[in-house]
């Protein structure tokens, strides 16, 4: 399979600057230990935009994502999605975690249909089978639909998890280090797949990652987070052309951006 993905030409028009996610003065203090994980975070994600957040371990990235997804209540501030406050898990939010977390007693297809089954029942899940098959086809594991997760490779399992996230047609995708458990080759490939899927669906995406190159190759805008308390320290816009491909990693421009972010992160982490 080629890593360079050709896209339909009509994607040239830039994303209309309509805000999808609006986060205002978001703070989170964990009650259990009184630890302030996030302090006054402001962030706006526009329609069709690919945002990435990068920061040292423990700076509150996962906490932010969980609050955005409605899995965790904030201590103060607010999160608006499509003009409505996020007050719990929502159908228009698709989430993906570091682990694929497929249920071992369900086939790949059954796992993909799980969100539909939970929200709308078994009949709706059966009705959505065709769509689930299309999704599996889209990520290239159509033949694995009736296999159980025990027989899937790590990469295949994460593909299935992508399908499970996409099945309910979410308006935004929230990804918490989705491929960091995969080997580097597979990860690069999956990242390009992710880009292709996001461009095709014009999805609004927010990615948490540890890897600077990964953030740069995928994102339109990178939020560099500062730890203790977690806050957005700098925003870097990446104006590399779309669709991106892995060869861009070797360009000087790419190198400069990576260098800049690395310095910035080093400064945040070690104060040098």
């Amino acid at each position: 399979m080629s890593q360079v993905v050709q896209l339909p030409a009509d994607q040239s028009e830039p994303a209309e600057a309509r805000p999808v996610y609006q986060i205002e003065r978001l703070s989170k203090t964990y009650g259990r230990n009184g630890f302030t994980a996030l302090k006054d975070v402001d962030l706006t994600l526009n329609k069709g935009e690919f945002g990435a957040v990068i920061g040292s371990s423990g700076c509150g990235k996962s906490t932010m994502l969980k609050i955005m997804a409605g899995l965790l209540p904030p201590s103060s501030g607010r999160v608006m999605l499509e003009g409505k406050p996020v007050l719990g898990p929502r159908r228009d939010i698709g989430m993906m975690f570091q682990q694929a977390t497929l249920l071992p007693w369900k086939t790949t297809l059954g796992n993909v249909l799980l969100p539909i089954e939970m929200r709308d029942g078994k009949a709706a899940a059966r009705a959505a089978e065709g769509r689930a098959r299309d999704l599996l086809e889209l990520v290239g594991i159509g033949r694995a639909e009736s296999i159980y997760p025990g027989e899937l490779s790590g990469g295949m399992a994460q593909r299935a998890a992508i399908c499970r996230m996409l099945i309910s047609d979410p308006a935004v995708l929230l990804l918490d280090e989705p491929f960091s458990a995969l080997d580097e080759l597979t990860r690069d490939f999956m990242n390009m797949e992710l880009q292709r899927i996001c461009l095709e669906r014009r999805a609004t995406t927010f990615l948490v990652t540890h890897s600077i190159p990964e953030a740069v190759i995928l994102a339109d805008r990178i939020y560099i987070m500062d730890a203790n308390p977690g806050r957005v320290a700098e925003i870097v816009d990446i104006d590399l052309p779309r669709p991106r491909n892995l060869d861009m990693i070797n360009t000087t421009k790419f190198g400069d951006i990576v260098h800049h972010i690395r310095e910035k992160l080093g400064k945040e982490a070690f104060g040098t």
Partner: peptide, 25 residues
């Protein structure tokens, strides 16, 4: 696992659904 519970929460599963569809199996 914590991951599985989080997944069920994120797809809007009720407590009963989480019990019957995740924890019991």
């Amino acid at each position: 696992s914590e991951n599985e519970r989080m997944l069920f929460k994120s797809i809007g599963a009720s407590r009963m659904q989480t019990l019957v569809r995740l924890k019991l199996p």
